[in-house]
Design a protein around this nucleic acid. Structure first.
Lengths: 212, 212
DNA sequence: CGCGACCTTGAGATGGCTCAATACCAGTGG
DNA sequence: CCACTGGTATTGAGCCATCTCAAGGTCGCG
């Protein structure tokens, strides 16, 4: 089980904030490891905010190839993909707690501003990810991935909640290539693999240089 | 590296236009081939709708690698990337006419609904593109690209406005691979290369099968 | 202690890349 | 009308980053 509760930090409004009558304060739900939150093609009625844990959103091709579109960690909002139906599937990476809101409430009542901000942010991330997938080498991808998680964690010691396979499917690589790249970065003294899920960044600047 | 030009700019604001007080119907502007519409990092004050022609939005790495994030054809809206500054650059692919609107007007006054719809659509496309870049073969990418343009054109005869280099940078391939793949598809009787910019789809179903 | 899930490592195969030559085509000037 | 030029596209040959296939290794847990 994940002893890796990604951040204890930031527990946002642990309080169901007081909010105008109509607005949906959000219900909390718990999900276990690999549990499905919603499936591709399913009606999209809710929007989710990660309270703790982590979520992956993904698409799969009929032959099993999978692309993880994004990992969501505490504070992130997801579920806005697709119009009336989800274009992506979503699963909990480890034990995860989510705040669930009605989608229409989020998009409308609540003042569309929050929705627009969330969407702009997602769109921005999507662009960066495209550049990564289209034009970066394996090493650059892994370095960017680590730096992204460093940013979320706020510290150089990362407890990655996801498996190598998840990372591979996120970066558009194979599990073997991801593993080898980790090993390489360790050999280059840029990271320390304390365990396979625990990575310490030893030389952040070098990693940043790799990504340019 | 990319064959991006330094062609002489051809007069920007060909436009004048009576602009009603608040509700912004949009000013029209013309752009010449390869002319910059906005640059990466530039303040993002406007949102654009393509009237005619085509636009590419892209990012470049310092060493010249370029990823075209999206092609925009008539009816498409772009310029919503980034928050206060553009995360992408935008250039006219060929002679292009745009309708320009103030960004804040688009996002607010105008009823955020249009903005949300546009963003959701873009986000959706971005996801599909990630799957393409991360998990598709060269052949699948080119087939998907052609089908995407077929959809926009509404006919099996496509007049592609962009160069092979543009296509390559959009699909995360090299120009040579794109060229070879076109040749292959022609050999397989799935397309006809009337000229390098004019492609006829001879067997759409086969192409769809390639993309699954 | 042994099982199962996951990760790492090795060796060989390969798709797409790089480098390089050639072809095409429109414009230009002789 | 043709030769020349510059930009773009195609084709070929060899290479290399990443993938595939396969064999161990590690670790948590019953």
């Amino acid at each position: 089980m994940n002893a890796i509760a990604f951040n204890t930090v930031d527990v946002r409004p642990v309080v169901l904030d007081r909010r105008p009558a109509t607005a949906d304060p959000g219900v909390r739900m718990n999900y276990g490891r690999d549990e499905e939150i919603f499936g591709e093609g399913e009606a999209s009625r809710y929007v989710y905010r990660v309270i703790s844990g982590a979520v992956r959103t993904y698409r799969v091709l009929s032959d099993g190839r999978r692309q993880i579109v994004e990992f969501h960690t505490p504070g992130d909002i997801f579920g806005l993909d697709g119009e009336s139906r989800h274009a992506l599937g979503a699963e909990a990476v480890g034990e995860t707690v989510l705040q669930v809101m009605r989608r229409d409430a989020f998009l409308n009542e609540r003042g569309a501003d929050a929705a627009i901000q969330a969407l702009l942010k997602k769109f921005h991330r999507a662009q960066a990810h495209m550049l990564l997938l289209g034009r970066h080498t394996a090493c650059e991808r892994v370095a960017a991935f680590l730096l992204d998680f460093r940013k979320r964690a706020g510290a150089d010691v990362l407890d990655l909640p996801m498996s190598r396979q998840d990372i591979a499917d996120y970066l558009g690589l194979t599990i073997e290539t991801v593993s080898r790249t980790f090993t390489q970065l360790q050999a280059a003294r840029q990271i320390d693999l304390v365990s396979c899920r625990r990575v310490v960044l030893r030389n952040r600047q070098a990693l940043e240089r790799i990504c340019e």
